[in-house]
Amino acid sequence: MGLLKRKKTDFSVREEHIEANLANSIVYVRNLQKVYSSAKGSVTAVKDININVLENEFVSIVGPSGCGKSTLLRMIAGLETATDGQIVIRDRNIIGPGADRGMVFQSYTLFPWMTVGNNIKFGFKLRKMPKEQQEEIVNRYLKIIKLEKFKNSFPRELSGGMKQRVAIARALADSPEVLLMDEPFSALDPKTREDMQLLMRQIWQEEKPTVIFVTHDIEEAVFLSGKIYVLTSRPGIVKEEIPILLPYNRDLSLKDTEEFVKLRKQVNAFIEHGEI
């Protein structure tokens, strides 16, 4: 953890555009590097990653399998320590996990012994929030994810899509400064997945969370995001930053428009051949 501290913040000239935006930047990742060392040797998972996420921005990270997307997200979450570089959330150096960064995982991570309501309240209880306030926020988020009727259900009674909706609500209910999502919909069937994309977009339009969203699915990334970072493989480097200039109000019909298809192809072109 200490290794992040020893690096002094140094702004080089090359990154003016990042610097210019720094005022309203929430997540600021600078020259980030991660090397996994093991008995078999060391793997550089990501190298020289520079990312800047503005307040209320929805940013996606796409790239081939194994390019270090999860590693990057986990470092921002503080679950993994960086080998080198710097992560700043507002004005704090990240040296460990905290409730200021919520995360939704690919696997189902609801606490199975708690009801849906208590899952969402988990963070509140840790912070000893007054009871009425807890109920109020829980009810509000259950409404947003359209699961009011399931407040007292246990996770095993929910479908995969419902579980992920609760996981999103649980992460958002803590009002994190940034919501990190690592392929949250990839275990779902195509239809549920599209429903989730639409819901996610609605949530973003209404609640305006700052989101960093990792996905394999370019269509999903284009549909949801305001900006996409394309990573290359081994070691993961930011290859391109693509602004997604699509209408603000989006529904699934957008996916058939010419603009959308063009953008999708544009992003696709930056990704190396082979499996994504």
Binding site: P97, A99, S107
Partner: peptide, 12 residues
Amino acid sequence: DDLISAGYTLGS
């Protein structure tokens, strides 16, 4: 692990 990680990101 992910259950524990989820806990950390909720401030535990």
